[in-house]
Computed example of a mutant assay.
Amino acid sequence: MNIKEAIIDGILVLEYQSGNVKALATLVKRRHKQFCEKAFWILKDADLAKDIAQDS
């Protein structure tokens, strides 16, 4: 993640904390693939990795 992405993510977190529910949906969309990839790297099971990413 570069600094620009980190700043955008931080702004989205602040927006969500201020009551903007759409900000959380945007943040999840931005990071879902990365969560799936990390979970798969650990679990070596694509379906389980998707479930873990969804739950988190």
Rank of each mutant, 00 (worst) to 15 (best):
E37C: 10
I52K: 04
V13E: 04
N2F: 06
S18W: 10
E37H: 12
K33A: 15
K44R: 14
W41K: 13
K50F: 01
I42C: 03
K4A: 15
Q17H: 06
V21F: 07
A46W: 07
L48Y: 04
K4V: 15
K22A: 11
K44P: 11
E15L: 15
S18Y: 10
I3H: 13
L12M: 06
N2A: 08
D55R: 03
G19L: 03
C36H: 06
L43N: 01
D9C: 13
Q34A: 11
Q17W: 05
S56A: 06
A6W: 11
L48W: 01
T26P: 07
N20M: 09
Q17A: 07
F35V: 05
G19A: 04
K50G: 04
L48I: 05
T26W: 06
L27K: 00
D55K: 03
I42F: 00
A49V: 00
L27C: 01
K44W: 11
L43E: 03
L12H: 03
V13T: 05
M1C: 08
A6Q: 15
A53Q: 00
K38L: 13
S56C: 04
Q17N: 11
E37F: 11
I8S: 15
Q17E: 10
S18L: 12
F40Y: 14
D9T: 11
K29Y: 04
A25H: 10
I3Q: 14
D9L: 13
W41H: 12
D45L: 07
K38M: 11
A49L: 04
A46N: 10
R30H: 12
I11L: 09
A23P: 00
R30E: 11
I42N: 02
A49D: 03
A46D: 13
T26G: 08
K22S: 12
T26S: 13
D55Y: 03
F40A: 07
N2P: 04
Q17P: 03
I52F: 06
F35C: 06
D47L: 05
D47F: 03
E5F: 10
T26R: 14
D9K: 14
A46K: 15
V21P: 08
K4Y: 15
K44L: 14
L43Y: 00
L14E: 09
V28M: 01
V28G: 02
I7V: 13
K38S: 10
W41D: 12
D51Y: 02
V28R: 07
Q54K: 10
W41E: 12
Q54M: 08
Q34V: 09
S56P: 02
L12T: 03
L27W: 01
L27S: 01
K22Q: 10
Q34C: 05
D51R: 02
E15M: 14
K4M: 13
V28C: 00
Y16K: 05
A25I: 06
A49R: 00
I7Q: 12
E5A: 12
I7K: 13
K33Q: 15
L24A: 08
H32D: 06
I7P: 08
E37Q: 15
K38Y: 09
K4F: 14
H32I: 10
C36P: 02
K29M: 04
L14T: 08
I11Y: 05
T26A: 13
G19Y: 01
N20Y: 10
K29Q: 09
K29G: 05
H32S: 08
K50M: 04
A39G: 00
G19C: 01
R30N: 14
I11T: 05
Y16F: 06
F35Q: 05
L48Q: 05
V13P: 02
A49M: 03
